[in-house]
């Protein structure tokens, strides 16, 4: 563990609390992509299923339980509790275009061709692109509630902080994980446009609006 990874994980936790808080205070899931949230459930289930056979630490174990259960809870909130506030006509990104290619890539580019490795690799690739339906939805509406942008900022910062973590691990442990690193850089790259608008508008007290 190092400070980058710890802060990254804390940003990830924060993003989930912000999202749940947003839905409770506004009593709605407006502006939230159900598809992205469903992809996160798939990401966490496929990556963290190893908690049944690989022991790492209490920290790792409890975080895995938390991410699986909170992502399922969020899916419940969007799909049942606040369903009337969900507009499927705005959430139209085709998830097949993400899940299919990620699965094929996981079959081709992995460390070992076995069940648990392919699940892990698939989850890494899918996590990198799972934000697409959410970004696509914002692109369509051209705006987002401020609290939704705080959620996305925390979620983007989480993986961005993993990059210095990998650099740190390379120098201190000599370890390199090309699959995680490449996917993590792609994942962070997808947020760059968003970060630009977030920093230049939202953090200056303005509303998040995309240029027409």
């Amino acid at each position: 563990m190092n400070v980058f990874r710890l802060l990254g994980d804390l940003a990830h936790l924060a993003s989930i609390f912000i999202l749940v808080h947003k839905m409770h205070i506004t009593r709605s899931c407006r502006g939230i992509s159900f598809k992205t949230q469903a992809l996160y459930v798939l990401v966490f289930l496929t990556r963290y299923l190893d908690l049944f056979w690989a022991w790492i630490s209490w920290y790792n174990f409890l975080m895995k339980i938390f991410f699986i259960s909170s992502s399922c809870y969020i899916l419940y909130l969007v799909h049942y509790r606040f369903r009337p506030t969900y507009d499927p006509s705005l959430d139209t990104f085709k998830v097949e275009y993400l899940v299919g290619p990620c699965f094929v890539l996981a079959l081709i580019f992995n460390y070992h061709f076995d069940f648990s490795e392919i699940l892990w690799t698939f989850s890494i690739y899918l996590e990198a692109v799972a934000i697409f339906p959410q970004l696509f939805m914002m692109q369509r509406t051209g705006e987002a509630e401020t609290i939704t942008t705080h959620y996305l900022a925390a979620l983007g910062v989480y993986r961005a902080l993993y990059i210095p973590n990998w650099i740190y691990r390379y120098y201190t442990e000599g370890t390199v994980d090309p699959i995680a690193i490449v996917a993590g850089i792609v994942q962070t790259g997808l947020y760059l446009d968003f970060f630009y608008v977030y920093v230049t508008k939202v953090l200056q007290g303005q509303k998040f609006e995309l240029p027409a």
Binding site: R5, D9, H12, A54, I56, N60, M63, K64, F67, Y111, H112, W120, I124, Y162, N165, W166, R169, E173, T175, V176, D177, P178, I179, A180, I181
Partner: peptide, 10 residues
Amino acid sequence: EGKQSAHDEL
């Protein structure tokens, strides 16, 4: 072992 480092990450 053969596992890459990120397997112990979240």
